[in-house]
């Protein structure tokens, strides 16, 4: 089974930055990308985040995600280019359909915002181990149960895709045809989903037991073996992130 984490191991300065600073950066730049009124500012944020991802060695994985959004982005251009309310200046015609400059610009802005959000979140999820993020939150008072819920979703849910692959293999070996038309694929759904749900329920019960026997619900203090410390200058970098967000809000409010 492949490692289910999204984390890309590395020792870059992006990796070394503490999780909460990166979380603050990701949140601020993703949100600022939506707020700034000029698409060139969103593009600049995108370039900045892509640069960080490049330095962290996670550019290829980010590119895959951006490529995966191509269908959605294409719908932006088709829908907005053809029918945005502000459409006035025809730009070109395809198969008898007229695309307008105004609508295409709106689609371009939407695409930039989407890509910037992907890149900003990428800075967080590709360079932070989920466990470190949760540890940082626990050290700031998050309850262990809430922390477990967060990290187990990040950790355990990706294993479901591995389970799906194994179950698919097991059912195909019993003659279940999964390659073919829609009807064939629909017939394969039940033998696929039912074992997945049943084994997930059984696993949930066993996992609850595993947590209990290892003292997860035990009252009293617990140790954090790998405490997550703030990076040097964390306050400054968080302020930079917040500053980007505030600047975006002010720019928008002042009608830039």
């Amino acid at each position: 089974m492949r490692a289910p984490s999204l984390y890309v191991p590395g020792r870059s300065f992006v990796h070394r930055a503490d999780p909460l600073t990166k979380a603050a950066w990701a949140f601020s730049t993703a949100l600022a990308g939506f707020i700034v009124p000029d698409w060139r500012a969103t593009a600049a944020l995108l370039v900045l985040n892509l640069t960080l991802l490049g330095l962290a060695g996670a550019l290829r994985r980010t590119a895959r995600l951006i490529l995966a959004s191509a269908v959605l982005v294409a719908t932006f251009f088709v829908a907005q280019g053809l029918s945005h309310p502000s459409n006035a200046e025809p730009l070109f015609r395809v198969f008898g359909l007229t695309f307008y400059r105004e609508g295409l610009l709106v689609a371009w802005v939407l695409a930039l915002r989407l890509w910037n959000t992907i890149a900003a979140i990428g800075v967080l999820v590709f360079t932070v181990r989920p466990q470190d993020l949760v540890t940082a939150l626990l050290m700031r008072g998050l309850s262990p149960r809430a922390g477990y819920a967060l990290v187990s979703i990040i950790q355990v849910l990706p294993t479901l895709s591995a389970s799906v692959a194994t179950i698919l293999d097991a059912q195909r070996s019993r003659g279940v045809e999964t390659e073919g038309g829609l009807r064939v694929r629909l017939r394969a759904l039940l033998p696929m989903l039912a074992p997945l749900i049943m084994s997930a329920l059984a696993a949930a019960q066993d996992r609850a037991v595993a947590l209990e026997v290892r003292g997860f619900s035990r009252p009293g203090p617990r140790t954090i073996l790998r405490p997550v410390r703030d990076m040097a200058g964390a306050a400054f970098w968080r302020a930079v992130g917040l500053g980007v967000l505030v600047a975006a809000v002010l720019w928008r409010a002042l009608g830039g």
Partner: peptide
Amino acid sequence: YNQISGARDTVYDEIAFGLENLGL
């Protein structure tokens, strides 16, 4: 397979998980 806590992302930390809960 169902004994993996899901709370830790390395084998090392998985073994340490119960000991952390004991507060050692």
